[in-house]
Amino acid sequence: MEQTQIPFGMLLQKAVRIRTHILEMLAEAKSGHPGGSLSAVEILVSLYFYKMRHDPKRPDWPDRDRFVLSKGHAAPVLFATLAEAGYIPISELKTLRKLNSRLQGHPDHRVPGVEFPGGSLGIGLSAAIGMALAGKIDKKDYRVYALLGDGELDEGETWEAAMAAPKFKLGNLTAIIDRNGIQQDGLTEQIMPMEPLAYKWKAFNWHVLEVDGFDLRQVIEALEKAENMRNRPTVIIAHTVKGKGVSFMEWDPAYHGKAPDKDTVKKLVESMRNQ
């Protein structure tokens, strides 16, 4: 197995690199979804560089942990993370959304390391359940992680899946909700109120944890706690900020699906690197 875990102190640096990749690739593509990509950076960093058992040289390794990006519009954060981990060349990131590129607007199987094509919202948790069931049948100890958007929870299939995972006693499944509070049309609590969110998942018999989604220590501790659950799935509600790291994007629903221009990104990246 490839050692993909890096020292805790270096995780922050990874997060900065991934944020700059996201901004640069979106500026190059001239379209895409910055807000929900930037809010999930620390979650993916915690998984790919600390928690998950995986090997970028063997994306099909049967014993690998699996990560399902259900909120597929956050493709930039996944591609940037896969590039930093060594699944794809960093130079390829600039081909995002371009004709003949593997890096589609929403992730698919052309890209090594992508486990599931999550473009249409609401399906990823179901697919993660399928992978977790297969792990149990095969008596393998791999874990399955699914990242869901909070707006995505409007989809009824999420709740079908939420009912099913505890029925099948999937202790090997962890769902993470990127609770950034914003969806395309506005605030989640205005478009379709989700609160009390933790109570909903508790009522569905999940092991529920809440963390600050930018505090790497909290995220990692929650992932460790999830692993201790033998027969019960865990959901981690990660409180985040849409557009995190770019002051004018934070809390602005307009940046759900609007790419920044190149000049702006150049200045942003310089200031990020100097921090």
Partner: peptide
């Protein structure tokens, strides 16, 4: 090797996709 998901067809197809992705 049998899973009854209840009256939840969308979930059933999604779970089937995950099972297939894991070699079933």
């Amino acid at each position: 090797r049998f899973f009854n998901v209840g009256i939840a067809e969308a979930n059933m197809i999604g779970i089937a996709a995950g099972l297939a992705l894991a070699g079933k």
